[in-house]
């Protein structure tokens, strides 16, 4: 009788007990590892972000933190985080943080507009989860360059970006898609157009 009882309780509680202990141990190890690495990761992230803002606004990145503090002021309005750059008290551009849905997850990007919001002077994707080697090619130089130095307003009206197949030669605000990654390309284009519309609406430049 006593033996059956012992066997039963070993059957019922031991697995749960074992699992709980093991989970606690491993999760504990992970938590320690996580907290040890967090400081480094955060510093790196902040550094990278500053670098991206500077790059989008076409500012020098030789001394990132210094340049960032010299040129950039952070602001927030109407749900947008933006960073305007001043050189010698003259505003040279506004950098907005935008996001949109991609194929696998959210895409985060920085766009830089000139003083009167008539030109898109910079575009950089800072975060994406697209298919590596395929949709992720939206981070490649040639792709992002297509959006840069483009006139986006004509007579107060927004000129939208549209997609063309990779073999076509794009004109004006047309962009070549990434071959085999139509969805990711479209996601970027949609994100840009939607956010540009919103920004122009909220900030009402002349």
């Amino acid at each position: 009788m006593k033996q059956t009882k012992k066997y039963l309780s070993e059957r019922k509680f031991y697995p749960v007990f074992f699992m709980v202990i093991l989970t606690v141990i491993f999760v504990g190890v992970l938590a320690v590892f996580y907290h040890l690495t967090q400081a480094r990761v955060q510093t790196y992230k902040a550094h990278q972000f500053q670098k991206m803002v500077l790059l989008t606004l076409d500012l020098p990145v030789d001394q990132i933190e210094q340049n960032y503090n010299t040129y950039i002021t952070e602001e927030s309005q109407s749900g947008f985080d933006y960073y305007f750059a001043k050189r010698n008290d003259e505003i040279i551009g506004y950098c907005f943080k935008i996001e949109g849905s991609g194929l696998w997850g959210m895409i985060n990007a920085l766009i830089a507009l000139n003083q009167d919001f008539s030109e898109l002077i910079g575009f950089r994707i800072i975060d994406q989860n697209e298919t590596p080697g395929l949709g992720a090619r939206i981070t490649e130089e040639w792709f992002q360059k297509q959006f840069q130095d483009k006139k986006i307003r004509h007579d107060g009206e927004l000129i939208k970006f549209t997609m063309v197949p990779e073999d076509d030669i794009p004109e004006n605000n047309q962009v070549q898609q990434v071959t085999g990654a139509t969805s990711s390309t479209r996601a970027v284009v949609d994100m840009l157009n939607k956010n540009l519309v919103k920004i122009i609406q909220e900030f009402k430049p002349e």
Partner: peptide
């Protein structure tokens, strides 16, 4: 099918 319905 891609592009028919965007579910993201």
């Amino acid at each position: 099918f891609s592009g028919i319905a965007v579910i993201q």
